[in-house]
Design a protein around this nucleic acid. Structure first.
Length: 510
RNA sequence: GGCCCGUUCGUCUAUCGGUUAGGACAUCAGGUUUUCAUCCUGGAAAGAGGGGUUCGAUUCCCCUACGGGCUACCA
């Protein structure tokens, strides 16, 4: 049993965009599979036809691809021998297991209407009893345990709607070992006879999940903590189906919490948190509402993977920067923490910044080129590359590439007012004029020569560096900060630099 | 309400009975960078509370408090 092949699955339901908590679950599954040379499966759990959202499945696939968390089997990633991987397409497979449970006495038909269930719950609530369909209350309901056999048969044959419920023992301790939490135990007296098979002919999550995990030979179920309360139900299903020997190991991950206030991070949190909740931008097909994504915000996929990995797991060393390969090597369920983690935007930014610095300029240039193309700016590849080299250290997001470098492509038409107000004085114009003259006579227009000419002009006019340097920057770029000034000017070139200074002089001297 | 899970700096976390309780982000103070959003140095910052067990508890047990999850013919 211990040396069973590691097969894990990520099993989202296509009810909307995947949120980062889900992405992290997928990541941990992926890491465990890769670490053990096992399989990572994407299974789509679309048993609730009423909650289907068009585009959600495609979104999930695209998000996993973008992040490099790629399943080697499953919807969108090629069928393995366990196809299909969409539960709606597996519909015919579940019935036999339901029937098995019924004939072994572990499940039963229930014919109660929604109204009858409702009134039962109200009645129980009124008498201060836990309102659940359980070993006691089922005796007063309409099901194959209470109805005469021939009536059950009649109802079934006449096509009357029914569900199948699991029959739980009245009082039974259900214990199981969680890879993260250790031994966890529940008592069936606190559980209810969950519906396994819905009146629309589809299994519920619980049944489909267990059946599919069994059929797909899943070795580890790694999922969010919100599933912990239903884990005993699943354990019981394995037992009743006779599969306890091959029951997967369970690992319930701590939840990702909202950074402010309380509660778990949810899809509905959308954008109001100040950071993306989704890997990719998502447009709600019904409302048209757009939620931002990490990709569009300018995060690098490797950075997102790295920062997500650290929300709930750590390697036990001081190392924080981890490539996917390093994560695979270092990962283990034994170092996953038990308590929920709040997302920290600052740390996320820091991670991304680190990754941007590590990114090759060629890659940054191709990203910047896309923006330039949209704006119909043709700057030449060498120039774009040089710009990227200069701004690389200054930006946090890919999307800032353009914001922080646009003055390399467009001459400024306004100048940082704070800097101008603080530094512009009667000497500014003459110094600038002298700079332009000096630049004209420079044999080579490189950073060192520019700096020398600059120092010379300042000395002659008895102007302090600190009083002019930032002004010089603003005249060239319009903004008060950026890459080293002289390198910037060198990149602009002699002609452009002079032109910019003239423009600035015209505007500021008046 | 019931059941279950959890609780170390503001945040993510290390510590697997004996530590000046470590790191990272953020923050604050200095310093480089002749400007700046980079970089360097330093500071402040934590074991929820109460009982046990033990020579010794952040670490093990119990209680309380607090936080979270679940409590659908949703997953």
């Amino acid at each position: 049993m211990e040396d069973r092949r590691v097969r894990v699955r990520f099993a989202p339901s296509p009810t909307g965009p995947l949120h980062i908590g889900g992405v992290r679950t997928a990541l941990y599954n992926y890491l465990l599979a890769k670490k053990h040379g096992g399989d990572f499966i994407l299974r789509i759990e679309d048993t609730d036809q009423t909650r289907f959202v068009p585009g959600a499945e495609e979104y999930i696939i695209e998000a996993l691809k973008w992040l490099g968390i790629t399943p080697n089997e499953g919807v969108g990633f090629g069928d393995g021998q366990y196809a299909p991987y969409r539960q709606s397409e597996r519909k015919p497979m579940y019935r036999q297991y339901v029937e098995q449970l019924i004939s072994s006495g572990h499940a039963y038909y229930a014919f109660d209407t929604a109204e009858e269930l409702e009134s039962m719950r109200e009645r129980l609530k009124a008498s201060n009893v836990d309102a659940k369909y359980d070993a006691i209350t089922r005796a007063a309901m309409k099901n194959s345990l209470t109805l005469p056999e021939d009536e059950v048969k009649r109802r079934l044959e006449s096509g009357e709607p029914y569900v199948v419920r699991i029959k739980l023992p009245r009082k039974d301790e259900v214990k199981f070992h969680d890879e993260i939490r250790g031994w966890v135990s529940f008592n069936t007296s606190q559980m209810d006879d969950k519906v396994l098979f819905k009146s629309d002919g589809m299994p519920t999550y619980h049944l489909a999940n267990v059946v599919d995990d069994y059929l797909m030979q899943i070795s580890h179920v790694i999922r969010g903590e919100e599933w912990l309360p239903s884990a005993p139900l699943h354990v019981l299903l394995y037992r009743y189906l006779g599969w306890e020997e091959v029951m997967p190991k369970f690992a319930h991950l701590p939840l990702l919490l909202k950074p402010e206030g309380n509660g778990k991070l949810s899809k509905r949190d959308g954008d109001r948190l100040g950071f993306p909740v989704f890997p990719l931008e998502w447009k709600d097909p019904a409302s048209g509402e757009i939620s931002s994504g990490y990709r569009e915000t300018g995060y690098l996929p490797d950075a997102v993977v790295n920062l997500l990995a650290f929300l709930g797991w750590n390697p036990g060393t001081q190392q924080e920067m981890f490539s996917m390969a390093e994560l695979i090597a270092a990962f283990g369920l034994d170092r996953v923490s038990k308590s929920g983690a709040k997302f920290d935007l600052n740390k996320a930014k820091w991670f991304n910044q680190q990754y941007i610095r590590k990114t090759d300029e060629v890659l940054l240039a191709s990203a910047l080129n896309k923006t330039l193309q949209k704006k119909a700016i043709d700057a030449g590849n060498e120039y774009v590359l040089a710009v990227c080299r200069l701004v690389k250290e200054k930006i946090t997001f890919i999307s800032e590439l353009w914001t922080y470098s646009q003055y390399f492509f467009i001459e400024p038409d306004s100048y940082d007012e704070v800097v101008v107000a603080k530094r512009w004085n009667e000497k500014s114009a003459p110094v600038t004029q002298q700079l332009m003259d000096a630049f004209a006579g420079l044999p080579a227009f490189d950073a060192a020569s520019i700096e020398a000419a600059y120092n010379d002009a300042l000395a002659k006019n008895e102007v302090a560096n600190k009083d002019f340097l930032q002004l010089f920057r603003v005249m060239l770029s319009g903004v008060g900060s950026g890459p080293p000034v002289f390198e910037m000017a060198a990149l602009f070139g002699r002609e452009n630099t002079t032109k910019r200074l003239q423009n600035a002089l015209a505007k500021l001297a008046s």
